[in-house]
Amino acid sequence: MRSTDFQTSTEPAPQSGSGIILRATGLRRDYDGVRAVDGVDLAIGRGRLTGLIGPNGAGKSTTLGILAGTIEPTAGIISYAGRDVTKLGTHGRARAGLLRTFQQASEFKRLTVLENLLSSVPGNPGDSLFGALRGPRHWRQFENEALDTATALLQRFRLEPQANDYAGNLSGGQRRLVEIMRALMARPQVLLLDEPMAGVHPKLAREIGEHLIALRDDGMTILMVEHELSIVDQLCDPVIVMADGRVLAERSMFELRQNTAVVEAYLAG
């Protein structure tokens, strides 16, 4: 069932020299006459934690959706690790190591927390029709190893007591954590986060932030849409600012705060 139309995510991506792992050129997206994204060019640096900010309606989530493959662009090209993935669907990009989370917590509500985490682990021999028909012996070992990894992750975020609870029963912040952990279990190279801290308790948000920084230091590339400027300030460098479907600027947070035009656009939104 799983076609190998792209390398697995554990293979090192070919170096493109400039350290840009995800590039978008000329992105456009129209909705019934409204231009949500209007000519966006992005170059996401490998191993950086990039922020994407802007007022409501700036087109941030739409852009992220286009990068992830869940939204089809009206125009534009996306290249990931040197390869054109514009025509590749969401699941293809996910298999290649480009994963996303959603603005509204999208954990699998009727699966347990552990099942959520296990569901995204790539390369599971039991995760195909014929693999499953061959019986538990075929995938038991893989599952146990994945279970160990998942347990460790749960312990790190102190969600272990809820391991076998339905994910839908957890609190808002915990459900968001489950979604992030689920994405992490897929061993992504690039992680696209859509407002991961929205509705999350500040203390928990800080923990998530620390974990994201640790992941970045380990080599993961992260692009984060976020509203809360203080969080962006702590975590992101560089920061891309969007408004009205266009990119206004791409700077470090420090430089941005000095640029009044951007601040005004943000306050006005």
């Binding site: 996910a94 959603f102 699998f108 039991g126 029709l129």
Partner: peptide, 25 residues
């Protein structure tokens, strides 16, 4: 046997939220 396997789990995930299921591969 199918339902109890990881394949079955991914089917249940798909049932729950097919957009999220696609997003994890």
């Amino acid at each position: 046997r199918l339902t109890a396997s990881p394949y079955g789990r991914s089917l249940r995930a798909m049932r729950d939220n097919d957009l999220a299921a696609a997003s994890i591969g």
